[in-house]
Amino acid sequence: MEKLPQKIYSLLINFYPMDFQKQHGLEMRQTFDELIKDYGLVKTWLRVLPDFFISVLIINIKDFMEKSSLQFKLALWGVAMLVPFTLLVLAAMLGTLFHFPANNFIGQHILAGHLGLAPFILIILPMGAFFMNLVPLVNNLFQQKQTSDVASLEFIRTNVLTLVVAVAGIGAAAFIPAHDAIPCFINGLIAQHFHNIVPLFDACRNA
C-alpha cells in the first residue's frame, strides 16, 4: 500500500503530459522510493520539489510545441487568456492595497472581492494540465489512432486527480465572494416559493 509521500508524489506526476506519464510514471515513482530509502524524507523532498516545478513546466511546454498546429493555437489562446488575467488581478490587488488605508471600508471590500479571485490563479496549473491532455485525446479520436473507449479511459485515469484539484479551486473561487449572500438567498427562495429569482439574487448581492 502506498504511503502518504508516495501518494503526494503520484499526484504531482499527474501534472506531466499524458504520454510522459505513460512512459516514465512508474519509473519516477520507483526512483522516488529509492531516494527516500537512501536520503530520507526531507532531503528527498528538497531535491524533488524544485526539480518538479521546473521540469513540469519545461516538459509540458516542449510537449505542447511538438503537437499539431491546432494544439499550438489552443495553447497560445490559453496563455493569451491566462497571463493578462493573472496580471490584472495581481495589479488590482496591489493597487487597492496601496490606494486605500487599512481601515477604509470601501477599500477593504474591493480587496476582499479581488481576493475572491485568487483561487482562480491557483487553478491555472491543474486546468492547464487538464487541457494539455484533453487536446491529444481529441486529436487521437479524430485521427482514429486508437479506439475511443481506450483513449477515454486512459484520459480519465490520468486526469481524475487533476480535475479534482481544479474543481476544488473553482468551488473556492465561487464560495469566497458569494458566501455572505447564501443564507439570504436560500431563505428568500423558500419564502418566495421559487418566484422572482432574479430580483431576489440581486437583493441578496446588494444586502
Binding site: E27, T31, D51, I54
Partner: peptide, 13 residues
C-alpha cells in the same frame, strides 16, 4: 544532482 523530472525528461528527449 538531478531530480526524477529532469532525469526522465532528458531520457525521453
Amino acid at each position: 544532482k538531478m531530480g526524477p523530472g529532469t532525469l526522465y525528461g532528458s531520457i525521453q528527449r
